[in-house]
Design a protein around this nucleic acid. Structure first.
Lengths: 181, 181
DNA sequence: ACCTGAACACCGTTCAAGT
DNA sequence: ACCTGAACACCGTTCAAGT
Protein backbone atom coordinates (compact mmCIF):
# COMPACT_ATOMS: atom_id res chain seq x y z
CA UNK A 1 0.00 0.00 0.00
CA UNK A 2 1.18 3.49 -0.78
CA UNK A 3 -0.03 6.45 1.18
CA UNK A 4 -0.28 10.21 0.99
CA UNK A 5 0.14 12.67 3.84
CA UNK A 6 -3.63 13.07 4.20
CA UNK A 7 -3.99 9.29 4.63
CA UNK A 8 -1.53 9.38 7.51
CA UNK A 9 -3.34 12.30 9.14
CA UNK A 10 -6.73 10.65 8.69
CA UNK A 11 -5.56 7.34 10.14
CA UNK A 12 -4.04 9.18 13.11
CA UNK A 13 -7.43 10.73 13.91
CA UNK A 14 -9.03 7.28 13.94
CA UNK A 15 -6.22 5.80 16.00
CA UNK A 16 -6.53 8.64 18.50
CA UNK A 17 -10.11 7.52 19.14
CA UNK A 18 -8.98 3.96 19.79
CA UNK A 19 -5.95 4.48 22.01
CA UNK A 20 -5.91 8.11 23.16
CA UNK A 21 -3.05 10.57 23.02
CA UNK A 22 -0.96 8.54 25.45
CA UNK A 23 -1.26 5.30 23.51
CA UNK A 24 -0.65 6.93 20.15
CA UNK A 25 2.84 6.04 18.98
CA UNK A 26 4.51 6.32 15.60
CA UNK A 27 5.22 2.59 15.70
CA UNK A 28 1.61 1.73 16.47
CA UNK A 29 0.42 4.06 13.70
CA UNK A 30 2.87 2.46 11.26
CA UNK A 31 1.68 -1.01 12.26
CA UNK A 32 -1.90 0.11 11.71
CA UNK A 33 -1.06 1.26 8.19
CA UNK A 34 0.90 -1.93 7.49
CA UNK A 35 4.13 -0.04 7.01
CA UNK A 36 7.52 0.26 8.76
CA UNK A 37 7.87 3.12 11.29
CA UNK A 38 10.54 4.82 9.20
CA UNK A 39 8.13 5.13 6.27
CA UNK A 40 6.05 7.68 8.20
CA UNK A 41 8.93 10.14 8.05
CA UNK A 42 8.43 10.40 4.35
CA UNK A 43 5.07 12.08 5.06
CA UNK A 44 5.66 14.03 8.27
CA UNK A 45 8.73 15.67 9.76
CA UNK A 46 8.10 14.41 13.30
CA UNK A 47 5.42 13.19 15.67
CA UNK A 48 4.98 16.75 16.92
CA UNK A 49 4.42 18.12 13.44
CA UNK A 50 1.98 15.28 12.72
CA UNK A 51 -0.08 16.07 15.82
CA UNK A 52 -0.14 19.73 14.81
CA UNK A 53 -1.52 18.78 11.40
CA UNK A 54 -4.05 16.44 13.04
CA UNK A 55 -5.28 19.25 15.30
CA UNK A 56 -5.61 21.54 12.29
CA UNK A 57 -7.68 18.93 10.47
CA UNK A 58 -9.88 18.37 13.52
CA UNK A 59 -10.48 22.11 13.83
CA UNK A 60 -11.24 22.37 10.10
CA UNK A 61 -13.77 19.52 10.29
CA UNK A 62 -15.50 21.21 13.21
CA UNK A 63 -15.91 24.47 11.34
CA UNK A 64 -19.52 25.49 10.67
CA UNK A 65 -20.87 28.18 8.36
CA UNK A 66 -21.01 31.64 9.84
CA UNK A 67 -24.44 32.91 10.74
CA UNK A 68 -25.33 36.52 11.30
CA UNK A 69 -26.68 36.98 14.80
CA UNK A 70 -26.33 39.39 17.67
CA UNK A 71 -22.82 39.51 19.12
CA UNK A 72 -23.93 37.53 22.16
CA UNK A 73 -25.36 34.60 20.20
CA UNK A 74 -22.52 34.70 17.72
CA UNK A 75 -19.91 34.38 20.47
CA UNK A 76 -21.98 31.74 22.23
CA UNK A 77 -22.27 29.70 19.06
CA UNK A 78 -18.53 29.90 18.34
CA UNK A 79 -17.75 28.71 21.87
CA UNK A 80 -20.26 25.86 21.65
CA UNK A 81 -18.81 24.86 18.28
CA UNK A 82 -15.29 24.91 19.73
CA UNK A 83 -16.38 22.84 22.71
CA UNK A 84 -18.12 20.32 20.44
CA UNK A 85 -15.03 20.03 18.26
CA UNK A 86 -12.80 19.33 21.24
CA UNK A 87 -15.28 16.91 22.82
CA UNK A 88 -15.80 15.02 19.59
CA UNK A 89 -12.27 13.58 19.72
CA UNK A 90 -10.61 11.69 22.52
CA UNK A 91 -8.15 14.04 24.29
CA UNK A 92 -9.28 16.76 21.89
CA UNK A 93 -8.38 19.65 24.20
CA UNK A 94 -4.89 18.30 24.90
CA UNK A 95 -4.42 17.77 21.16
CA UNK A 96 -5.26 21.41 20.44
CA UNK A 97 -2.94 22.54 23.25
CA UNK A 98 -0.15 20.58 21.56
CA UNK A 99 -0.95 22.23 18.25
CA UNK A 100 -0.83 25.68 19.83
CA UNK A 101 2.63 24.82 21.14
CA UNK A 102 3.43 24.24 17.47
CA UNK A 103 1.98 27.69 16.69
CA UNK A 104 -0.62 26.18 14.41
CA UNK A 105 -4.04 25.74 16.06
CA UNK A 106 -7.07 27.67 17.19
CA UNK A 107 -6.30 31.02 15.61
CA UNK A 108 -9.47 30.85 13.56
CA UNK A 109 -12.10 30.86 16.35
CA UNK A 110 -10.01 33.42 18.25
CA UNK A 111 -9.98 35.73 15.24
CA UNK A 112 -13.70 35.34 14.63
CA UNK A 113 -14.57 36.17 18.23
CA UNK A 114 -12.27 39.20 18.23
CA UNK A 115 -13.93 40.43 15.02
CA UNK A 116 -17.41 40.07 16.47
CA UNK A 117 -16.37 42.08 19.51
CA UNK A 118 -14.66 44.74 17.40
CA UNK A 119 -17.79 45.13 15.25
CA UNK A 120 -19.76 45.71 18.40
CA UNK A 121 -17.95 48.61 19.96
CA UNK A 122 -14.96 46.96 21.62
CA UNK A 123 -11.63 48.71 21.14
CA UNK A 124 -8.91 46.45 19.62
CA UNK A 125 -7.48 45.66 23.06
CA UNK A 126 -10.80 44.55 24.54
CA UNK A 127 -11.61 42.58 21.39
CA UNK A 128 -8.36 40.64 21.64
CA UNK A 129 -8.49 40.00 25.39
CA UNK A 130 -12.21 39.24 25.37
CA UNK A 131 -11.74 36.59 22.67
CA UNK A 132 -8.81 35.09 24.61
CA UNK A 133 -10.85 34.99 27.79
CA UNK A 134 -13.65 33.07 26.08
CA UNK A 135 -11.15 30.73 24.44
CA UNK A 136 -9.35 30.05 27.70
CA UNK A 137 -12.60 29.32 29.49
CA UNK A 138 -13.70 26.86 26.79
CA UNK A 139 -10.30 25.21 26.58
CA UNK A 140 -9.92 24.98 30.36
CA UNK A 141 -13.40 23.55 30.74
CA UNK A 142 -12.95 20.80 28.15
CA UNK A 143 -9.35 20.00 29.10
CA UNK A 144 -10.35 19.54 32.72
CA UNK A 145 -13.33 17.40 31.78
CA UNK A 146 -11.34 15.18 29.43
CA UNK A 147 -8.41 14.89 31.85
CA UNK A 148 -10.81 13.33 34.31
CA UNK A 149 -13.66 10.89 33.60
CA UNK A 150 -15.15 9.41 30.47
CA UNK A 151 -14.21 11.53 27.46
CA UNK A 152 -16.82 10.44 24.94
CA UNK A 153 -20.12 9.96 26.77
CA UNK A 154 -22.02 13.15 27.39
CA UNK A 155 -22.78 14.00 31.01
CA UNK A 156 -25.91 16.18 30.85
CA UNK A 157 -25.20 18.38 33.92
CA UNK A 158 -21.85 19.09 32.37
CA UNK A 159 -23.42 20.87 29.40
CA UNK A 160 -25.54 22.93 31.77
CA UNK A 161 -22.44 23.94 33.74
CA UNK A 162 -20.73 24.95 30.54
CA UNK A 163 -23.70 27.05 29.48
CA UNK A 164 -23.83 28.73 32.88
CA UNK A 165 -20.11 29.48 32.88
CA UNK A 166 -20.27 30.81 29.35
CA UNK A 167 -23.20 33.00 30.38
CA UNK A 168 -21.13 34.47 33.21
CA UNK A 169 -18.26 35.40 30.89
CA UNK A 170 -20.62 36.85 28.28
CA UNK A 171 -22.34 38.91 30.97
CA UNK A 172 -18.98 40.33 31.99
CA UNK A 173 -18.21 41.20 28.37
CA UNK A 174 -21.58 42.90 27.99
CA UNK A 175 -20.73 45.16 30.89
CA UNK A 176 -17.38 46.11 29.30
CA UNK A 177 -19.01 46.74 25.92
CA UNK A 178 -21.56 49.04 27.56
CA UNK A 179 -18.75 51.14 29.07
CA UNK A 180 -17.17 51.68 25.65
CA UNK A 181 -20.41 52.41 23.80
CA UNK B 1 22.49 7.18 49.50
CA UNK B 2 19.13 6.23 50.95
CA UNK B 3 16.05 8.23 50.20
CA UNK B 4 12.55 8.85 51.44
CA UNK B 5 9.46 9.49 49.37
CA UNK B 6 9.65 13.23 50.03
CA UNK B 7 13.23 13.28 48.68
CA UNK B 8 12.05 11.73 45.44
CA UNK B 9 9.18 14.22 45.14
CA UNK B 10 11.47 17.15 45.91
CA UNK B 11 14.08 16.07 43.38
CA UNK B 12 11.36 15.63 40.75
CA UNK B 13 10.29 19.24 41.22
CA UNK B 14 13.87 20.41 40.63
CA UNK B 15 14.31 18.12 37.65
CA UNK B 16 11.06 19.41 36.14
CA UNK B 17 12.60 22.88 36.10
CA UNK B 18 15.67 21.59 34.26
CA UNK B 19 14.12 19.37 31.61
CA UNK B 20 10.37 20.04 31.51
CA UNK B 21 7.54 17.53 31.64
CA UNK B 22 8.54 15.99 28.32
CA UNK B 23 12.14 15.38 29.33
CA UNK B 24 11.26 14.08 32.77
CA UNK B 25 11.77 10.32 32.80
CA UNK B 26 12.01 7.84 35.65
CA UNK B 27 15.42 6.78 34.38
CA UNK B 28 16.69 10.35 34.25
CA UNK B 29 15.34 10.97 37.76
CA UNK B 30 16.99 7.78 39.02
CA UNK B 31 20.30 8.79 37.45
CA UNK B 32 19.98 12.21 39.10
CA UNK B 33 19.55 10.57 42.48
CA UNK B 34 22.41 8.16 41.81
CA UNK B 35 20.16 5.14 42.03
CA UNK B 36 18.87 2.42 39.68
CA UNK B 37 15.47 3.09 38.01
CA UNK B 38 13.86 0.16 39.80
CA UNK B 39 14.68 1.69 43.19
CA UNK B 40 12.15 4.48 42.55
CA UNK B 41 9.32 1.96 42.67
CA UNK B 42 10.03 1.46 46.31
CA UNK B 43 8.86 5.05 46.90
CA UNK B 44 6.14 5.57 44.29
CA UNK B 45 3.67 3.23 42.62
CA UNK B 46 4.17 4.64 39.13
CA UNK B 47 5.25 7.73 37.23
CA UNK B 48 1.63 8.89 37.14
CA UNK B 49 1.24 8.62 40.88
CA UNK B 50 4.56 10.44 41.35
CA UNK B 51 3.43 13.34 39.16
CA UNK B 52 0.18 13.54 41.12
CA UNK B 53 2.14 13.81 44.35
CA UNK B 54 4.44 16.41 42.78
CA UNK B 55 1.44 18.53 41.73
CA UNK B 56 0.01 18.27 45.25
CA UNK B 57 3.30 19.46 46.72
CA UNK B 58 3.52 22.33 44.23
CA UNK B 59 -0.02 23.40 45.11
CA UNK B 60 0.74 23.14 48.84
CA UNK B 61 3.88 25.29 48.46
CA UNK B 62 1.90 27.94 46.60
CA UNK B 63 -0.72 28.19 49.34
CA UNK B 64 -0.87 31.57 51.08
CA UNK B 65 -2.66 32.54 54.27
CA UNK B 66 -6.30 33.45 53.88
CA UNK B 67 -7.12 37.12 54.20
CA UNK B 68 -10.56 38.46 54.88
CA UNK B 69 -11.59 40.76 52.09
CA UNK B 70 -14.63 41.49 49.98
CA UNK B 71 -15.73 38.53 47.83
CA UNK B 72 -14.35 40.20 44.71
CA UNK B 73 -10.84 40.72 46.08
CA UNK B 74 -10.84 37.35 47.76
CA UNK B 75 -11.65 35.57 44.48
CA UNK B 76 -9.19 37.73 42.60
CA UNK B 77 -6.43 36.91 45.09
CA UNK B 78 -7.11 33.18 44.92
CA UNK B 79 -6.94 33.26 41.13
CA UNK B 80 -3.73 35.29 41.14
CA UNK B 81 -2.23 32.88 43.66
CA UNK B 82 -3.23 29.92 41.50
CA UNK B 83 -1.77 31.54 38.42
CA UNK B 84 1.48 32.31 40.24
CA UNK B 85 1.73 28.73 41.48
CA UNK B 86 1.30 27.34 37.98
CA UNK B 87 3.67 29.87 36.44
CA UNK B 88 6.35 29.29 39.05
CA UNK B 89 7.07 25.79 37.71
CA UNK B 90 7.93 24.76 34.18
CA UNK B 91 4.83 23.14 32.61
CA UNK B 92 2.98 23.88 35.86
CA UNK B 93 -0.47 23.96 34.27
CA UNK B 94 0.03 20.67 32.43
CA UNK B 95 1.33 19.14 35.65
CA UNK B 96 -1.83 20.15 37.51
CA UNK B 97 -3.98 18.83 34.67
CA UNK B 98 -2.21 15.49 35.03
CA UNK B 99 -2.87 15.52 38.77
CA UNK B 100 -6.55 16.23 38.21
CA UNK B 101 -6.68 13.18 35.97
CA UNK B 102 -5.39 11.35 39.02
CA UNK B 103 -8.24 12.91 41.03
CA UNK B 104 -5.79 14.59 43.34
CA UNK B 105 -5.15 18.25 42.48
CA UNK B 106 -6.71 21.68 42.69
CA UNK B 107 -9.68 20.86 44.88
CA UNK B 108 -8.50 23.31 47.51
CA UNK B 109 -8.69 26.59 45.53
CA UNK B 110 -11.94 25.39 43.96
CA UNK B 111 -13.45 24.79 47.41
CA UNK B 112 -12.28 28.14 48.73
CA UNK B 113 -13.77 30.04 45.82
CA UNK B 114 -17.07 28.17 46.09
CA UNK B 115 -17.21 29.02 49.81
CA UNK B 116 -16.58 32.69 49.17
CA UNK B 117 -19.39 32.75 46.64
CA UNK B 118 -21.75 30.83 48.95
CA UNK B 119 -21.07 33.29 51.79
CA UNK B 120 -22.03 36.09 49.48
CA UNK B 121 -25.48 35.10 48.39
CA UNK B 122 -24.81 32.51 45.69
CA UNK B 123 -26.96 29.40 45.81
CA UNK B 124 -24.93 26.13 45.98
CA UNK B 125 -25.23 25.62 42.23
CA UNK B 126 -23.95 29.08 41.32
CA UNK B 127 -21.16 28.78 43.93
CA UNK B 128 -19.94 25.52 42.39
CA UNK B 129 -20.20 26.60 38.75
CA UNK B 130 -18.82 30.07 39.44
CA UNK B 131 -15.73 28.61 41.12
CA UNK B 132 -15.27 26.17 38.21
CA UNK B 133 -15.56 28.98 35.70
CA UNK B 134 -12.84 30.97 37.43
CA UNK B 135 -10.64 27.88 37.73
CA UNK B 136 -11.09 26.98 34.07
CA UNK B 137 -10.23 30.50 32.97
CA UNK B 138 -7.05 30.53 35.08
CA UNK B 139 -6.03 27.05 34.02
CA UNK B 140 -6.77 27.70 30.34
CA UNK B 141 -4.87 30.97 30.41
CA UNK B 142 -1.71 29.53 31.98
CA UNK B 143 -1.81 26.25 30.02
CA UNK B 144 -2.05 28.17 26.75
CA UNK B 145 0.75 30.52 27.76
CA UNK B 146 3.07 27.72 28.86
CA UNK B 147 2.26 25.55 25.84
CA UNK B 148 3.60 28.37 23.69
CA UNK B 149 6.63 30.58 24.31
CA UNK B 150 9.02 31.03 27.17
CA UNK B 151 7.56 29.53 30.34
CA UNK B 152 9.67 31.21 33.00
CA UNK B 153 10.27 34.81 31.95
CA UNK B 154 7.41 37.12 32.70
CA UNK B 155 5.86 38.95 29.74
CA UNK B 156 4.36 42.11 31.25
CA UNK B 157 1.42 42.53 28.82
CA UNK B 158 0.51 38.99 29.67
CA UNK B 159 -0.24 39.86 33.28
CA UNK B 160 -2.37 42.78 32.15
CA UNK B 161 -4.36 40.48 29.84
CA UNK B 162 -4.87 38.06 32.70
CA UNK B 163 -6.10 40.85 34.98
CA UNK B 164 -8.49 42.09 32.30
CA UNK B 165 -9.87 38.61 31.61
CA UNK B 166 -10.27 37.96 35.31
CA UNK B 167 -12.10 41.27 35.66
CA UNK B 168 -14.53 40.23 32.91
CA UNK B 169 -15.39 36.96 34.65
CA UNK B 170 -15.73 38.65 38.05
CA UNK B 171 -18.03 41.27 36.51
CA UNK B 172 -20.23 38.48 35.15
CA UNK B 173 -20.34 36.86 38.58
CA UNK B 174 -21.28 40.16 40.21
CA UNK B 175 -24.25 40.38 37.92
CA UNK B 176 -25.36 36.86 38.87
CA UNK B 177 -24.91 37.55 42.58
CA UNK B 178 -27.03 40.67 42.29
CA UNK B 179 -29.88 38.64 40.79
CA UNK B 180 -29.86 36.23 43.73
CA UNK B 181 -29.55 38.91 46.42
C1' DA C 1 8.10 9.09 -4.57
C1' DC C 2 7.54 5.87 -1.20
C1' DC C 3 9.17 2.07 1.17
C1' DT C 4 12.36 -1.59 3.85
C1' DG C 5 16.11 -3.02 7.11
C1' DA C 6 18.87 -2.13 10.55
C1' DA C 7 20.42 0.49 13.97
C1' DC C 8 20.86 4.20 17.98
C1' DA C 9 19.66 5.99 22.12
C1' DC C 10 16.16 5.87 24.75
C1' DC C 11 11.37 4.60 27.64
C1' DG C 12 8.19 2.50 32.17
C1' DT C 13 7.85 -1.38 34.89
C1' DT C 14 8.60 -6.04 37.18
C1' DC C 15 10.87 -9.19 39.96
C1' DA C 16 14.22 -11.96 42.14
C1' DA C 17 18.04 -11.19 44.90
C1' DG C 18 21.05 -8.70 48.00
C1' DT C 19 22.05 -5.85 52.76
C1' DA D 1 13.41 -0.81 54.38
C1' DC D 2 15.82 0.31 50.50
C1' DC D 3 18.61 -1.02 46.90
C1' DT D 4 20.91 -3.73 42.62
C1' DG D 5 20.86 -6.61 38.33
C1' DA D 6 18.73 -8.21 34.70
C1' DA D 7 15.17 -8.45 31.83
C1' DC D 8 10.58 -7.39 29.00
C1' DA D 9 8.12 -4.91 25.89
C1' DC D 10 8.23 -0.86 24.27
C1' DC D 11 9.58 4.36 22.33
C1' DG D 12 11.09 8.44 18.27
C1' DT D 13 14.22 9.07 14.74
C1' DT D 14 18.01 8.46 11.16
C1' DC D 15 19.98 6.70 7.18
C1' DA D 16 21.53 3.77 3.63
C1' DA D 17 19.45 0.95 0.37
C1' DG D 18 15.80 -0.81 -2.55
C1' DT D 19 11.79 -0.20 -6.42
Amino acid sequence: MRYRRSDVIGRTIDLLEEVGLEGLSMRRLAGDLGVRPSALYHHVASKQELLGAVADEVLARGRRSTEVLGWRDELRLTCLELRDTMLRHRDGAALIALARAEGVGGEDPLQRMASVLAFNGADPELARVGASTLFHFVFGHVADRQARGLSSTEVPDESADFATGLGIVLRGLESRLAQHA
